[in-house]
Write a protein that binds this DNA or RNA. Structure first.
Lengths: 202, 202
DNA sequence: GCCGAAAAGCAAGAGGGCTTGCGTTAGAGT
DNA sequence: ACTCTAACGCAAGCCCTCTTGCTTTTCGGC
């Protein structure tokens, strides 16, 4: 997620401008929110001409994606030795991230992003990295014998994380603290069996 | 979803303008896509002044939501007597709808929509209607004894539909024909048990 | 039929995203 | 050190969303 930075030379003019612009974008994003961020303001704060931004990034959207992906570290992939605990921790972390201004902005920008080749590649890389990390939770559980090797790690992770994204992006309902655990229990045991009374909430 | 239309009088000027604008918007949406739709074009095609649109709807976004929700019938809620079949059919229908231009546009517009009170109310009504219908699948299964009454219908439906939305909005990966069935099997039985070899795809 | 209010028509314009043509500057390679 | 080129600075302008002040039409109630 942070692979640039050593593009040509750390102190080259290009790198300097790039860093200044991305920093400015993130600061203004935190200050004025996603809608309030104007390219002209970013340019002014970065001490750079607006045209330079458009020449390099092309669109406001591209700039946002670049800044947000650079600012977004990978989610930590827990490894407690317990599948259930790992999944609950991961979902909880994700929900917490999506509740931050940066997470919220990233989510909405990704959802609104277009389909040009460059954007497609950035998106694919991002999700591949996310999936690669989180699927380890499932892979390790299979290795430990906690899960049969017939499970599809990708589908399992999708079923875990997508309800969280769903609420943030579409229904906009809050994610109660107990939701990750209920999600994981349903995912592991299936809804056809009654779940253990393991959630105080709701 | 289609509750207006008898606002003041079917032939009143307001109603006429409203209908003309929404029709024009949907036609242009189908013709030029979500990004290609311009308010001025809608006004021209509807034979209406652009100002009238902005006076009534306020923003392009509101216009889109109004047109799309009006054009979107409720998804049919299957009732085959088998929970598994109902869920698979529902998820398949949803995926098919989201693959249509209208569905795609609705999905993205909803995700991008803001949080003003009017929008919030429209969104809540939409999702309440969707949830109300789809949760019946689960409720009926409980009544039939196919599921214990400890299941949370809302969570179950969220876990069913959100991976579909997730792919459409965020990862943009295609939804393979076999996905709904695999989703339902994982949801019903849990990933901890090996699934029956019931999917030819993948 | 008449009248008051609500909605539509109209013109003008502000603001932000994005583009283009041209001159200027800085840094990478030799 | 010198040049050649990629990147930036700058000015001007287009397009689209959205706003505002005022006039004109139309509809519903009396």
């Amino acid at each position: 997620m942070a692979e640039a930075e050593v593009r040509r030379r750390p102190g080259g003019r290009s790198a300097r401008v790039r860093a200044a612009v991305l920093d400015a974008a993130l600061e203004l994003l935190a200050a004025h929110g996603l809608e309030g961020l104007k390219v002209a303001d970013v340019a002014a704060r970065a001490g750079v001409h607006e045209t330079s931004i458009y020449r390099r990034w092309g669109t406001r959207e591209n700039l946002l994606i670049d800044a947000l992906l650079e600012a977004t570290g990978a989610l930590t992939v827990p490894d407690t030795g317990s599948l259930r605990d790992d999944l609950v921790a991961y979902a909880t972390d994700l929900a917490a991230f999506l509740a931050t201004p940066t997470g919220h902005a990233l989510e909405h920008t990704l959802a609104a992003a277009g389909d040009d080749p460059a954007m497609r590649e950035a998106r694919d890389r991002y999700w591949a990295a996310r999936a690669g990390g989180s699927m380890q939770i499932v892979v390790r559980a299979v290795e430990r014998g906690e899960l049969p090797d017939t499970v599809d790690p990708r589908l399992a992770i999708e079923m875990l994380v997508s309800p969280v994204h769903f609420r943030v992006l579409l229904t906009r309902e809050p994610i109660e603290p107990g939701m990750p655990a209920r999600l994981v229990d349903a995912l592991l045991g299936g809804i056809a069996v009654s779940r253990p009374p393991s959630d105080p909430a709701r």
